[in-house]
Amino acid sequence: MGKIWSFIHKLGSPKWFYGISARLMPWFWTAAVVLILAGSVWGLAFAPQDYQQGNSFRIIYVHVPAAFLAQSIFVSMAVAGLIFMVWKIKVADMAAAMMAPLGAAMTFIALFSGAVWGVPTWGTWWMWDARLTSMLILLFLYLGVIALRGAFSSRDSGSRAASVLAMVGVINIPIIKYSVDWWYTLHQPATFSVTSRPAMPMEMWAPLLIMVLGFYCFFIAVTLMRTRSEILRRESNKRWVREIAGEQG
């Protein structure tokens, strides 16, 4: 137990985090590249065609992992915000700041791939489908958090404001999701549904699982990398950062 606590305490130190992340990052990058490559090749070339949608269903191998990440990143951003607000751990805030644009990008990818998928399946680019709608709202939540952080002239206030908003948002996400689901069933008869397909055979969902894992590794690797540069930027007046900069010329 003592070891775990000292590990957590050490994580709060930017210098220590900088060191440990340098050792972890290559593993996550390798895993991300291998998993995404394997999943893509398997999913795009070897998985069987869908008997209703033909080849167009293969967009699922980008769409679903992106949608997974879009939601998970918001939750991890709120958790990082909570850690920052309660224990004043700056690394948590740096990570949260770096996660927000990635999460917004993933939400956009999920929306865009959903729209592209909509053309062959629904015959239109956009439907006010419950999931598409709640994804769109999630994108607005991300944009709000990013804009709020940028609006403050003092970095510390911006960090704390963004943390509060991320926590408020994460409480609201399930409420928004369920109310949009309710609204959808109330107003629109489900003429087309992606979910009503029969359960996927193993050859279809195994590459999907690999892709999801690959995307998660990608997210961790990118967050570690970007947090490292943010540490250097924010701690640029510290001696250990200057020493690193000195070493590299």
Partner: peptide
């Protein structure tokens, strides 16, 4: 409360708040 200290908080305020208003609007 989040935007009161900002000189041009008005537009930002609507960006922050409107997504959170959606459940109330629906019901």
């Amino acid at each position: 409360a989040l935007t009161v200290g900002l000189s041009r908080g008005g537009v930002l305020l609507s960006l922050l708040v409107l997504p959170l208003y959606i459940p109330v609007l629906i019901f």
